[in-house]
Write a protein that binds this DNA or RNA. Structure first.
Lengths: 257, 257
DNA sequence: ATGTCTTTGTGAACGCGTGCACAAAGATGG
DNA sequence: CCATCTTTGTGCACGCGTTCACAAAGACAT
């Protein structure tokens, strides 16, 4: 998962577990594909396979929504698409603003993924005067000075931050003050927000680092606990006594830079 | 979190819980910032605040790595940076390939986030002949026909997929066959891979849908279980019998489009 | 040395999420 | 109408992750 939650910790939202909510979009995508192929019904087994999850988990997830589905038959595809869409709030459309139209922001704006289902880009916003007015994804970039007005006039409650890390918290504060209560953050920073505001983050480098960890582990166990791979730079400071009890071997007491 | 894991389920990797691994990059980032400000030591309380987590959790996370830290004082910033880097495998550098240099792929390639810490973009690859040879992020795009050769010659074990959904599984298969064992997937599809291959996914629209869910819930509870907010389209279809027991109200039986 | 004060490291309890396994429900055929 | 077969919905148990709360460890002053 390339995402991290920053949320009020234990709030089981109206009986639907957070883990289930996170999977609903997955089911919805699989169901939409089936719907386009005019498949009328689908079993939990088939749908689970398409969504890449366990069928028992899928059935339990659906049980939180209600008792849709017919024993001996399966689930009605169209009906389920609607139920999940409604549960996720996709039957209304959500105007969003995107702040920070650099490389990433522009790419996101051009990405069709939003508009398709329930989301509408109300405005693209940047702080650079040179960007203002330039069309991106068929829409002129607006200046951040107008942020509050734009949010207010369009009734925006969801904001996407794609600014550099340094500007993110400041932008976040302005969004929240202007009334935004959900934020998707692409900047590599921890945002702090008041209670009642949801933040989800997408962090490329974190994802890669997690992969690197597993990659290293795979390489390591295949080669036994091989020789010392990296003691390049020497550490001048006080040797950290002897008390270290790191799990693997013992620490090299050095920093590679 | 804008990420979802697709992983062998219960493999506690060498004693370090998966949840902890996912937080290490966060700690590392906070520590690096402290290091740049030449802060020598930091307490679990301070660091936890900077990383946006609970201090007890942070201490427990670090306890899996070993007993770094001095009671009454805190943690040595430089030392901890090194230990975490080593644990994550960032003391070596990882060549990666990125497949699919469209809007998103190009933006990712330009994003400095990789190179900075342990990752090196070995090649940008696309299937479109018109793209081949064009420089993106100071590097010529190569054709996908050379995928296997590139992976082999550079010893690549991590791949990033930024292709359209339709091409993703196919690209994934080729990557895996060529020897890649970790994949970061930006395409909105579920990838299936053999055991031993790690996949992490970053999915924009899923993140937005999760936000929409919470947004809807907030709006709903603030207005009591108010009047029907959105019955714009009329549903003509067959009322689905009576047996439905959805939690809220009762089902509308149809899809708004 | 001894005492005080700070902060770590962790035992223990709790809650959430997952998966098994099965009873109940309904379809289908005779 | 009954038997059989399929598939849902869920009770239950288990394991992971989080959090509390505190003892132990060390720094620091006297």
């Amino acid at each position: 998962m390339a995402t991290g939650r920053t949320h009020r910790p234990a709030t089981r939202s109206r009986g639907i577990p957070e883990a289930t909510v996170a999977r609903l979009p997955l089911y919805l995508r699989a169901l939409t594909a089936l719907s386009e192929r005019s498949v009328p019904t689908v079993s939990s087994e088939e749908l689970a396979a398409a969504a890449g999850v366990n069928s028992a988990k899928l059935r339990k997830d659906f049980s939180y929504l209600g008792s849709y589905g017919t024993r001996g038959v399966g689930y009605d595809v169209e009906y389920l698409v609607y139920q999940i869409s409604r549960e996720l709030g996709l039957t209304q459309d959500w105007p969003i603003v995107m702040v920070g139209i650099g490389n990433l922001g522009a790419a996101l704006a051009n990405y069709g993924g939003f508009a398709s289902r329930g989301f509408r880009v109300a405005a693209l916003i940047d702080a650079d005067p040179a960007m203002v007015g330039k069309p991106v994804a068929g829409m002129p970039v607006q200046h951040i000075d107008d942020l509050e007005k734009i949010i207010d006039e369009n009734g925006v409650s969801i904001g996407v931050i794609a600014t550099p890390a340094g500007a993110a918290q400041q932008v976040c504060d302005r969004l929240v003050t202007a009334g935004v209560t959900s934020i998707l953050n692409f900047a590599p920073t921890v945002l702090s927000v008041p209670d009642g505001v949801d933040v989800r983050k997408v962090d490329l480098s974190i994802e890669l680092q997690i992969l690197a960890f597993h990659e290293q582990r795979k390489a390591g166990e295949e080669a036994g606990a091989a020789e010392a791979v990296v003691p390049p730079v020497v550490r001048g400071a006080t040797a950290p006594a002897e008390g270290r009890k790191g799990p693997d071997g013992d620490m090299p007491a050095v920093m590679p830079a």
